[in-house]
Design a protein around this nucleic acid. Structure first.
Length: 291
DNA sequence: ACTTTGACCTGTGCGC
DNA sequence: TGCGCACAGGTCAAAG
């Protein structure tokens, strides 16, 4: 599901509620998600206060009073919501749904309900408790945040100039830029008029030097992510904001999931085409994406 | 060293 | 109505 804008929207929804909250206890309804839960995962969280809620790439980072960090990746279908106990019995488990895997009972916060529920039908997400995020294997090696100052056309050119893989595949590589996924890569390439099949190295004029297309690409990546953030993210099926509402950026896609429909660029008569690159759908306009 | 494929899961939508 | 297949926002290990 969630790419950088969606994960950030979740962070924005959770941060004001969770910061300062006490985790009374944690209930696990299975042994793990994509990865097994760490030993004593629930016990280690219980009694801790949440000090800070942050994000790096597509990871949510909950800093705890022990200075450990709870790291949460939403995979394709992970989401958080607040829930009430069953009004009849007060039971925590009743009234919850099939794919509610982790339940946090909170106190010391004016949350809309006392239980924070992590649900994830496909279980591609995972949670990990890490002592030191500086050396954490999930975070080391991640590329720059696309909305931060570390990403520049020159820094991207440095990454691209020796890669022969299509630019589409390279932009999905979290070591190159951290946080992009299939939707926003397709959209950014369209806005920058770059064919997704273009060899990455062909966008770097000389080693470390961006050509004009690369300057445009960096700009358009930033623009599309910011617009999606403004719109509350993209809700296809599973993505929900913490308050249960959906984002609406999906109504502003120029290419994603628009196979066979007309290109929306003014003066372009092209038809959006779907191809498969490294096993994933790429949507693009063969007429105006010709760099 | 590089790139593509398959695997991990469940749900949904489509064609027959 | 039901069945089977293709496909889905992500990532990793394995195979080419």
């Amino acid at each position: 599901m969630p790419e950088l804008p969606e994960v950030d929207i979740v962070k924005q929804g959770l941060a004001p509620i969770l910061t300062g909250a006490l985790i009374e206890r944690v209930i696990l309804n299975r042994n793990g998600l994509r990865l097994p839960f760490a030993a004593n995962f629930a016990q280690r969280l219980s009694g801790q206060k949440v000090i800070h809620v942050g994000r790096r790439a597509k990871y949510l980072l909950f800093t705890l009073s022990s200075s450990e960090v709870l790291l949460s990746h939403l995979g394709m279908t992970g989401n958080f919501r607040f829930a009430q106990p069953d009004p009849q019995t007060g039971e925590i488990k009743t009234g919850f749904q099939k794919h509610d895997h982790v339940i946090f009972e909170l106190s010391g916060t004016d949350a809309p309900a006392p239980f924070l529920v992590y649900s994830d039908p496909r279980r591609f997400g995972f949670m990990e408790l890490v002592e030191d995020i500086e050396t954490c294997k999930f975070l080391v090696g991640l590329g720059p945040e696309p909305l931060g100052n570390a990403l520049t056309a020159a820094s991207l050119a440095e990454q691209l100039h020796r890669r022969k893989a299509p630019i589409k595949a390279t932009l999905l590589d979290q070591r190159v830029i951290a946080g992009l996924g299939n939707i926003y890569v397709c959209e950014a390439l369209h806005r920058a008029a770059i064919d997704p099949r273009t060899r990455s190295c062909d966008l770097a004029a000389t080693p470390g030097t961006p050509g004009p297309a690369l300057e445009s690409l960096v700009l358009q990546i930033r623009l599309v992510l910011n617009e999606a953030l403004q719109a509350g993210g993209s809700t296809l099926k599973d993505f929900r904001k913490v308050d249960g509402g959906g984002g609406y950026f999906q109504h502003r896609f120029f290419v994603y999931d628009r196979e066979g429909e007309p290109c929306l660029n003014e003066n372009c008569k092209g038809t959006i085409t779907r191809i498969v690159q490294s096993g994933r759908s790429s949507f693009y306009c063969p007429e105006c994406q010709n760099t």
